[in-house]
Design a protein around this nucleic acid. Sequence first.
RNA 1: GAGGUUGUAGCUCAGUUGGUUAGAGCGUCGGAUUGUGGUUCCGAAGGUCGCGGGUUCGAGACCCGUCUUCCUCCCCA
Length: 456
Amino acid sequence: MSNKLNTPKGTRDHLPVDVRKREYIFKAIAKAFQSYGYQPIETPSFELSSTLMGKYGDEGDRLIFRILNSGEKVKKADVQALQNDELAKFANSISEKALRYDLTVPFARFVVQHQNDLCFPFKRYQIQPVWRADRPQHGRYQEFYQCDGDVVGSDSLRNEVELIRIIKQVLSGLNLPGFTIKLNNRKVLSGIAEVCGVEQELIALTVALDKLDKIGKEGVVDELVSKGFSQEVLDKIDPLFGLEGSFETRLEKLKVFLRGSEIGLKGLEELSFVHSKLQDFDANHELLELDVTLARGLNYYTGIIIEVKAHEVEMGSICGGGRYDDLTGLFGLKGLSGVGISFGADRIYDVLNSLNLFPASLSEGPEVLFLNFSESTADQCDVWANVLRSRDHIVEVYPSASKLQKQMKYANDRGAKWVVFYGDEEAAKQQVVLKNMSDGTQTSYSAGSWINEWLG
RNA sequence: GAGGUUGUAGCUCAGUUGGUUAGAGCGUCGGAUUGUGGUUCCGAAGGUCGCGGGUUCGAGACCCGUCUUCCUCCCCA
C-alpha cells in the first residue's frame, strides 16, 4: 500500500459489531418516540447556506461545513473580496450549500415549508447524521448522529413533561444505570441578569455560569471579572453558587432571589409545574436536578432547557434540548412555539461501550452454517437453508468447497451456533450431521426429515 | 479559530549519541493434518518508517511545512 489510508478528520468507519450497537440505540430511541405518537421525518443532508447561516451564532457559523460550487458556478467566485481579505464574502461567493449542522433548524424550515400539509401540534422524530467542522476530541466528532424529537404548535408545558419521560424511557431502556436530567429556564437566567442589573450582558453571564461544574466558583468569578462584571454583581450572584438541596428547596431559594423579577418568577413557575408532573418517576429525587448554571449555547431557546449527563463516565451531555418560542419565525412563520430534545447517539454509544452495557446477543453470528463439500451437496444445502430462512433463522452456506479446516475456522470466527455436515459420506447414508459449536457434540439425523426433527 | 501531542508491517509497538540488509508479538497465508473450530509446532508473505521539502558523506531518528491522532481552550451532541 503506497498511501496511508484514513477516513477524514473526525469521522469513523463502523464495523459490523459497531453498526449493530448503533442500531440498538436508534431502535430504543425510535421506539420511545413512537410510543408517544411522534412521527418520523427525514430532511436532506445539505441545505441552502442561507437556511443555516446566522442561526447558531458566530461560533456556530464558523463550524458549518460549506459545499463548494461546481461547474460554471465556480465563475461566481468573488476574487475581489478575497483580495480585500473579506473571507466570509468570498466564501459565500463560492458556496451556496452547506451540510446541516443540527436537525432543529432544518426542521424549522421543514415546518414552515410544509405547514399546509402538517397537522398541529406536530410531533416528529428524526434520526440522521449532522456535520460540524469542529476540532475532534473525546466524544466530539465532525460527523455524528443526532436523534431529535420536537413538538411544534403547542406551548403547553405538558410537552416538556412528555419529553422528559421519553428521555427516561430511552436511557432506562438502554440500562444506563446512572444519569441526571438537569433542568433550567432561560427566563430564570434572564431574571438573574435582571436582578443584577446586567440584562445586556446576559450571554456573557450565563456562559460563565455554565462552566461552574468544570472550573469551579473561583474560575467563574475570574471569568466574570475579566469580562468586566462589577464586585456588586458578583456579590449579588454569590448565593447562586451555594444552591443545594432538593428541587423544591432550590425553587424556594430562587423565589427569594428572583422576587424582583417578573420573568424570573415566571420561569420558576414553569419549572415547578414540570417538576410536579414528574413526581411519580422521580420519587427518590435522583433524576431531576434544578441547575441554574445550565445555559446551553444555542441562542434560540426561550423557556425550559434540558441537559442530560451520564454518571460514572467523563463525557459531555448525552442529550439536550429546550423550548424555543419563535424558531419558525426566522423563516417567516410567527407565533409557533416549539420544544424539543436531541439525543447524541454517538456519545450514548461511547458511554454504553465504556460501561460495557451492550447486550452480548448483539454480536451473535449465524445460527446455522452449512459446510460446503461439493457442488451437488451444496445445492441440497441451499434448499434446506431456504427452508430454515423462511422460518426466520439466520443461515449461511459456505460458498466454496474449501478445506474443512478453513470452513470450520470461519464458522468459529463468525460465532456460528450450529454447523451442518452434508457431504458425499452423509449423502450416501441418507443422513445429515449437526455439530453444536459450543460443546462440540455431533448428532445424526435422517436427511429426509431432519429439519422438523431438529427444530422439534 | 489558539496551544500542545502523535504517526514505523493489517493491528499493538521496539528501534541506542544520526552509521551496513528496519525488528518482535498478534493477525494473514501455506504446511504438519486431502472430512472437523477455539490448543500446539514448522514455514512464508507483508514496510517509499504519514506525505513533501531541508540539513548531512549518510536521516526512521535532526529542522521546516502539511495531513492525521489524542488532549486543553473556544464551543458543543
